[in-house]
Computed example of a mutant assay.
Amino acid sequence: MRVGYGARADIDSAGADGVAAHLDTTWLTGDPPWLSLFNRWLADVVRTSGPTGISPYIEANAMVLGTVDADGHPQTRTVLCKGVDAAGVVFFTGYDSAKGLALQANPYASVTFPWINLERQVHFRGPVTKVSAQETREYWDSRPRGSQLSAFASAQSYPIGSRAELEELAASTAERFADDQPVPVPPTWGGYRIEPRVVEFWQGRADRLHNRVRARMVDGEWLTERLQP
């Protein structure tokens, strides 16, 4: 179903994100030129509240990750971003999961932050590397214990007979680490960092005359440009 873009009746602006100014390449500043704007847009999402005062973005850091497996088949799924800085975008998963095996075969990925309610999107593309064991450990230690137990118990992406079997597996893992024993980082679990080579910002405008600006790495330098919608 097609939906309209542009100014809402309650906002006198050029777009439904409430920002009258048009997204422009001049908004891409700093080193790298995409980081400051991304942080501002993410903060906008976190601050955004619906009519009930509850944010429509329960997971503001959710992003759609695209990979290509060894057979050349693409796959997308939603994961949670756990860090963005000048070095790139970080997420965590099982190394032997479907996404982990795809990244082993083709260590290049794309992610999209689809902030549809604000009519904004940000796309990252670039090579992927594993984060250090120390970085993985620091994040692991910050996770709720239940999340640690589930990650330790699960052979991510592999078949299992039933929900009951899955719950039994989780219960036996919890029993294994009873009495608040520390749950170790699974040897096949950790973080990945997408090192951006292309970063694109998208802002919805009326009549689908959307704004798109891009920063891309060329010969070791960032170039910025406007794209046609």
Rank of each mutant, 00 (worst) to 15 (best):
V131I: 08
S49C: 10
G4K: 14
A60H: 14
A133T: 12
F152M: 06
E138Y: 00
V89Y: 14
S157Q: 05
G220C: 12
L37K: 10
R77W: 02
I11T: 09
P56F: 09
N61E: 15
E168Y: 01
R40G: 08
S13A: 15
E200S: 13
A171L: 13
P33F: 04
Y5D: 11
S97N: 11
A151F: 02
V185M: 05
R120I: 07
N106E: 03
V68N: 07
H123T: 10
R212Y: 06
D44F: 01
G146D: 12
V79Q: 05
H73I: 14
I116V: 12
D71I: 00
A109N: 06
V199F: 08
A206V: 13
D219F: 01
F91I: 07
A86T: 03
R205L: 12
I54P: 00
S154E: 03
D31S: 14
T48G: 00
G100S: 12
N61Y: 06
R125F: 06
D44G: 09
G15A: 13
V122M: 07
T76V: 14
L227T: 00
P51Q: 10
A164N: 02
A7L: 01
R120Y: 07
L223I: 14
D44P: 03
Q228K: 00
F92N: 02
N39Y: 00
A87T: 14
K99L: 13
E168K: 07
N211M: 12
D180H: 08
E200R: 10
D69W: 06
D179R: 07
L149N: 06
V128S: 03
E221V: 01
V3Q: 11
G4S: 15
Q121D: 04
N61I: 00
F201Y: 10
G146S: 08
A215C: 12
I194H: 08
V19A: 12
Y139L: 13
D31P: 01
H73M: 10
M217N: 03
H73D: 01
A102V: 02
P33G: 04
H73S: 08
P32I: 10
S172Y: 01
V199H: 08
P196K: 05
P33Y: 06
F91W: 15
E225R: 08
F177L: 10
Q104L: 08
V84N: 09
P196Y: 11
G83W: 10
R143A: 03
A105R: 03
L227D: 05
Y158T: 15
R163T: 08
A98G: 10
Y5F: 11
